[in-house]
Design a protein around this nucleic acid. Structure first.
Lengths: 245, 245
DNA sequence: GACGCCGAGTGGTCCGACCACTGTGCAGCA
DNA sequence: TGCTGCACAGTGGTCGGACCACTCGGCGTC
């Protein structure tokens, strides 16, 4: 048995754990043997088992509960796409435009679906999110404002009832990305425009008007995109800024 | 409900490394300090640094070369979304419908953009892909057919010139997922319809007609989606769709 | 019966050692 | 001179054991 290829232990362990899942030895939501048991079972060190678990955790397949054990997730799209967010955290600025372009494709469609599907509680929750957004927009620092802006849009997308869509959208609109887009937007004076956009979107949702929802959402993303484009052009290429020299 | 500072060391290390990247201390393609150096610099054990590196490697941010060092990837969207594929490997069938719904949002828009941007070589390449698809469709096994189908659609999306979009689309149309959708489609006899769809899309692209491109692409995805829905229903699955949380 | 403490078991972290691989520079050869 | 080949230093890969932090369930108290 000459195996010419030398497979890293951690990688092999990943495969073994995945096999345990796909063979049904442990199902979704169920608990995995302890790290020490797996270590003995696979004949590798505990550290290697931990690295394998780290990988699968990052991929959204496993979930670790300190002191309680390692569990298989429900394997839903939102579990598996959670890691997706790094994209918007480390990508260079031009990528932000690409991301917005993708959002321009999915957010209007999602908003249209939401207009047809949202329950009264959904609308109430989204409305409250918007109220808080406007409150903090006037009083607190822009950081909080961004969080509620995020909540507003995510709440709408969630109403579309498509977990995959929700997860993809979440990845394209992480807090970090939002922050990078809006850094200094208060001074730019387009806050009022955004305020108006949000209100119109909410009205369209309340009217249960998919077409209006699509149109208002499109206009909104387009406004952000255009603003970002001109902004990037004006400041050049200062990604993440240079902190203290 | 004050959130304490109980941040795990490994997680914090991930943030610190990400910070090194986003501040530009280490750029794309560049080499990171050694594990031992990072260990000393962050004041954590080498094992924890390794776990952090594992996470970032899984996310496509870092790349490890045994004996040579740890490097930052090009940070292109396709690097960062490489791990995206797990979605289609372990997700339950109803997720496939969700995925197609998302594709219905982005693929028509992408095709429309492609119609306006595609070069002659692009069109030539896509046309050849389609020829090969039809050839294998008639002669070889459906597996190859799926590969060319994938190539056709990916080629179109790539013409849109948005790497993020390309990567997202790739994640939503991995070979594994494609295979699951089309398992048995030859027997279902809709191959001819798809053939027709593809030809119309290509014609729209050649006409540089964005609206036609959008319409034909929409019709195509819609056909696939409808086919899959009826197929899933026949085996007793139903579309989930109730929003979580 | 309800409350609260405590200990066993689990993951989290650290340390130090050694193995496996890579790249480089020097010595030896043609 | 020019190239080849090997040794070495540096890097990631793996290991084992030790201890810390957290969870949870059982036992005692009230």
């Amino acid at each position: 048995m000459v195996d010419g290829v030398r497979t890293p232990v951690a990688q092999r362990t990943v495969e073994q754990i995945k096999a345990m899942i796909s063979t049904g030895e442990v199902g979704p939501q169920q608990r995995l043997p302890t790290e020490r048991d797996l270590s003995a079972r696979f004949g590798v060190s505990r550290g290697s088992v931990r690295e394998a678990i780290r990988i699968l955790t990052t991929l959204g397949v496993l979930e670790v509960r300190h002191g309680a054990g390692v569990y298989v997730t429900a394997l839903r799209p939102d579990d598996l796409l959670e890691a997706f967010g790094v994209l918007s955290e480390v990508s260079p600025d031009p990528t932000l435009l690409e991301v917005l372009q993708v959002r321009r494709m999915i957010e209007p469609a999602a908003t249209a679906i939401a207009a047809a599907r949202a329950t009264d509680e959904d609308l109430k929750r989204i409305g409250e999110m918007l109220d808080r957004l406007e409150d903090t927009d006037r009083s607190a620092e822009p950081g909080d404002s961004g969080a509620f802006d995020l909540g507003f849009h995510r709440g709408i997308v969630a109403c579309a009832g498509n977990a995959t869509l929700t997860a993809v959208h979440a990845g394209l609109s992480s807090p970090t990305l939002n922050e990078r887009v809006w850094a200094g937007h208060d001074a730019a004076g387009i806050a009022r425009d955004l305020y108006e956009d949000h209100r119109r979107i909410l009205e369209a949702l309340r009217d249960r008007d998919p077409e209006a929802a699509r149109a208002t959402a499109t206009a909104h993303v387009l406004r952000v995109e255009r603003w970002l484009r001109s902004h990037l052009r004006s400041v050049g290429t200062s990604l993440g800024g240079e902190p203290e020299r």
